[in-house]
Amino acid sequence: MSTLRIRSIGGGQEPVRISSGPGCLEPLRHIYRRKCYNGNTNKEEFFMALIIASREVDGVTVLDLSGRITLGEGSVQIRDAIRDLIAKGQKSILLDMGDVNYIDSSGLG
């Protein structure tokens, strides 16, 4: 079992450290969480702001994004992840945004 790499995004954000198990094979995974009001449950809860998981498919690096892409949370991390890949010479990158449920103006940019 290996520990996944988790980044904190600074003040007030609590990094979440988890360990990979048999069903968790992603080699790269960033998780951010934030406490906010859940209108469906009528109480404040911790939400996973953004999860980025990376996998390789036929020479293409697929970044599976899940959660929110907002200023200070997801947008910077996505840029960092893509820049890291480009710096390593990877030019075939696919963003799977099927599980992204919120994008603000920064995320659009």
Binding site: G11, G12, Y37, G39
Partner: peptide
Amino acid sequence: TMESVDAVEAAVE
């Protein structure tokens, strides 16, 4: 701070 933004968002929600 961005924490203030989150607090505003929660109150508005």
